[in-house]
Design a binder for these strands. Sequence first.
DNA 1: AACGGAAAAA
DNA 2: TTTTTCCGTT
Length: 597
Amino acid sequence: MKTPGDSDWAYKPESSPGSRQIQLWHFILELLRKEEYHDVIAWQGDYGEFVIKDPDEVARLWGARKCKPQMNYDKLSRALRYYYNKRILHKTKGKRFTYKFNFNKLVLVNYPFIDMGSTGSGVPQSAPPLPSAAGTHFRFPPSTPSDMLSPNEDLRSPGGVFSAVARRMARGSVSDCSDGTSVNSEIEDGNGGGGEERGGERGLNGGGGGGYRSMIHPRLSHESLFRMYGGAGNPNAHPGSRGPLGHRVHPDNLSPFPVSPLPGPGGAGLLAPPLSPALSLTPSSHLPYTPSPSLSPMLGSHFSFNPEEMKRYLQAHHQSVYNYHLSPRAFLHYPNVIIPQPHRLAQDKRELGERGGAERGGERGGGGERERGERSGLNSHRHPSPLSQSHSPHPHSAHPHPHSAHPHSAHSHHHPIHHPLHLGEEPPHLSPFKFKLQPPPLGRKQRDGSQGHHPRQSSLSSGSGSLSSSGLGSSLSFGSDLSSAGGSGLISNSSSTGSLNSTGLPKIKVEPISDIESEEEVEVTDISDEDPDDRGDEYDLFSPRHPGLTPTTPTGPPPTHTPTTRTWMRMSSRPPRPLLQACCPSSPPTPTADLPP
DNA sequence: AACGGAAAAA
DNA sequence: TTTTTCCGTT
């Protein structure tokens, strides 16, 4: 029995089974936020919609991160498909390699603020949802007309819902597959280009102010927030300076979403009070109070969180804030969350140019090698580090390049190079509490009993678990709403970390509200029958309905597509690509370079 | 290309 | 639990 307070599973510390390391969707988000990977994967289309421009590459990266060299898009996509039921993502039908995050439910548990920072480079509208705080609650801006369709937009939550996405992923999320050597995943930092090493670039923000939009989670206390944001930590984080060491010390960086909408009109003006602290997120730990004005108000005013919990949490995390495993379904509704300010930028620019398909010429045919050249050009053209830029007062000031703007992009290859940075250590902190809820989608007809059995031969046996704890993660969670009727839905959590059984989870499961389904294209794949709980949540928080805001969404996201066709998939196993093999097997050979030729 | 069952792996 | 792997189907 679990009383309603214990969301057992909601808690899973890292040790728990469920909390393994990084989750795919998190990883995707991470890639999306980095410009370096924009050639590979980028936001496009409606909010939350992204297209995998280079499936093969994405798979490779993912495989690298998980130490699964055999990863390919087919497999990766299978994993993505599992998210459908969890509602973390949907497939955008009709567009190849295009999926859409359901930020609707995505909530950031730990850090509910959303910020996006990355350069503003072009962020398509699809980028991340920005919080618009028009009123009290913050929601994501309407995305597309279709979203607006949602019938039930109101969240049922009485108080209001707040859903935000948290940001920040560890940049260095790289874990280490191997033991000590870090293999860097490819994603490490993003910088890309400009520098060669991205060692410490974390510079998050320095300045402040950039335009992040942030939200605060109701549960967070000021302190916690400050800590998070505050950063005290990196004094040196200069944008440009990449320290040779240090690397990854900090964590968070920006939101998962790469986009930064804000650059708009007044630059930071919109969010005038965006929290500066947010920018600096260094987890350094204690930061004195330096709450930015903006924050303070909010914090103080509305949330009631238990300090103790927070403390525990903080302790656990220490500074690191990341926890990668978020739970897919957790979410909380936050009754009164106020946003610091303003309204979002109404329409950012919706240029989305999308690169159409011409981008990469298709070189990857599969068989050959894929060398990813560097895309340094992209970044290099300017920003020293993405991170930092965001914080800067006007990061992107001049560069509007949406996506396609890159000159070289057209040229061809620009694969990101992954630089060596090893992230070194990852603080293994676990999080004492995570709010994770994830009701199993099951229920479906599944298992009938007889039928399927595929005795497949087991082929490999990898064996070794290299999981160790990685620890980072942010905790975002997608949730279905659990507001139980009262809206109180938070997750209480207690502490049973080890046990989570799903058997009972009535706690959070929520409801049957009416579900609408959702989005235009999204059909629900399953939820029809049995899972009451699932279905209800399809709403997009970010969706629409914003009176004040204009949804200028033109609806159509243009041409997002362009998938170059690639053929390989399926079991083809990967052709000759030794790329990252260094991972798991304890062979940490080239630490630096990511891909050993 | 995408879907999803199933079993296995981690 | 989530992800990986394999594979038949659409």
